[in-house]
Computed example of a mutant assay.
Amino acid sequence: MKLKNKLLLTGAATMAVLFLGLNANAARMDMVDVSNNNGYMSTAEYVSMRNEFGVKAVTVKISEGGTYKDPYAASNIKNVQAAGMYINGYHFARYATKAQAIAEADFAGGTAKAAGLPVGAVLATDVESQEANNQSKATNDRNNAAFMKEIQKFGYRADIYTSGSWANTKMTIKGRTGWIAAYPYVVSGKNWYSNNHAWQWSSTAKFRISYGGFDVSQLNSNYYTAGQKSTVKPTNKGAVKHNNRKANKHAYKKSASSKWIKEAKTYTLKTAVKLRAGASTSSNVITILPAGTTVKTDHAIIQGGYRWVRQPRFNGYGYLATGPSSNTLEYVKSGATHTYYTVKSGDSWWAIAQRNGLNMTTLASQNGKTIYTTIYPGQRLVVR
């Protein structure tokens, strides 16, 4: 989520640590980002995040590339505002040229307006795709600058989201800008990226009445809470302190035990990708898979700063990176192709599963839910 940094700083407030730590040695749960992957999120869920976990801001996925509009953007924006929290948005970037960056900014800005994202909110560009990985640092900087300059025409403030391994290697992230994702083995004891607006330190945070894992970030400035009215007042400070420490402990366990997990998925490559003999950028290149290639994988892992998937081959396995390690094992943001079903009135988990030849539990699980989760008309579910 990001743009050219001189433009990015336009109207930005000075860096200030507005949020006093509940535990000086623990990362805070100041901000959560949500998308269609999380399904429908109610106002009650956001109130619980606010009151019991100390969440102050929510950043909602708005769009991706030049055609995809997140179906839950409008309801998420509405419900976050009803919960009295700060609201922002992000666009998952697919651009590889300046012209594409401008076109995606126009698409994202228009989509955000239609979904109700208020003027003055941040609309960040999420730069972690294979398209960006294939570009030089100079090209990414130029493209990000073009996106950010264009997005400001809609009245939104701009920022860049990327992984720590890409910051200042794949693109420039100056001080007092940027939202950086990095999941350390030990969260406590260090405020990573304290000179940036925000540090996303976990992708597996759990909330009491919400299903699945969530991305959580610590805010190191007021950039994501500026220019908006909020009634954020956590009502259970004891619970906030306890849950904050618990989240830090969970993040440590999750990061320290990175391992291969079963994950059968099909990818259609939008750009050429190197297929390697091992899950490492130093492994030998077996071949270069051209754009348009369909790849079926069976396992996934996060290691070495990247998210890797394994492709069974006639004489063993091939490995390819789907993006930086900020792509969680629970949800592939880049490269995945799915078939969706739109829930209709009267539908149930059982009926949808039967209609698509799936086990009901499998259907719920691949959508990050359980068979006891309520589904709503208009909701999109992954069925393939």
Rank of each mutant, 00 (worst) to 15 (best):
G368Q: 11
V285I: 08
N88L: 13
Y340G: 02
S75F: 00
P312D: 05
T97H: 08
A73E: 03
G318A: 11
A264I: 01
Y72G: 06
K237A: 09
A105H: 01
T235A: 08
N51L: 03
T281D: 09
A57K: 06
S325H: 12
G116C: 02
K69D: 00
Q100A: 13
V216M: 10
T281G: 02
K149S: 15
S282W: 03
I151L: 00
A112Y: 04
A181E: 08
N5L: 09
I288D: 09
N79I: 05
A146R: 02
K78E: 08
V32D: 05
R245G: 15
H242Q: 10
T342Y: 01
Y40P: 06
V34Q: 10
K270E: 13
N236H: 01
R50I: 05
I160V: 14
G304C: 04
V309F: 15
V119C: 08
I77Q: 02
K233S: 14
S75D: 10
G318P: 07
N25W: 10
Y156F: 13
G323K: 09
Y211G: 07
M1T: 15
A300C: 10
G66F: 00
Y95T: 05
S365R: 15
K190T: 15
Y224C: 03
V273P: 04
Q81Y: 00
V285R: 03
Q366G: 04
I87R: 01
H242C: 08
W260Q: 02
M49F: 04
T172G: 13
V273Q: 09
G21E: 14
A272W: 06
I286D: 02
V216Q: 06
D141H: 12
Q218F: 02
N315Q: 07
T204W: 12
L381G: 01
I151F: 09
G116H: 06
L219W: 10
V80C: 02
N222G: 14
N236F: 09
N356Q: 03
L22I: 09
L289W: 04
R50T: 03
P290V: 05
S188W: 13
S202R: 04
A167I: 08
I173Q: 05
W350N: 11
K149F: 12
S203A: 15
I87G: 09
A26Y: 05
Y86K: 10
M360H: 03
T43F: 00
Q100W: 01
T293N: 03
G335N: 07
E104N: 00
E64Q: 11
L269G: 07
A226E: 13
K344R: 07
N195A: 14
V47H: 03
S334M: 01
Q200E: 10
T373H: 13
G335M: 11
G357Q: 05
K253D: 12
Y46N: 00
G54S: 02
G110Q: 06
K6E: 12
N23H: 14
T339K: 08
W179N: 08
A112Q: 02
A93D: 09
A205M: 12
H242D: 11
M1E: 14
L381C: 05
W201V: 04
W166V: 07
G84M: 01
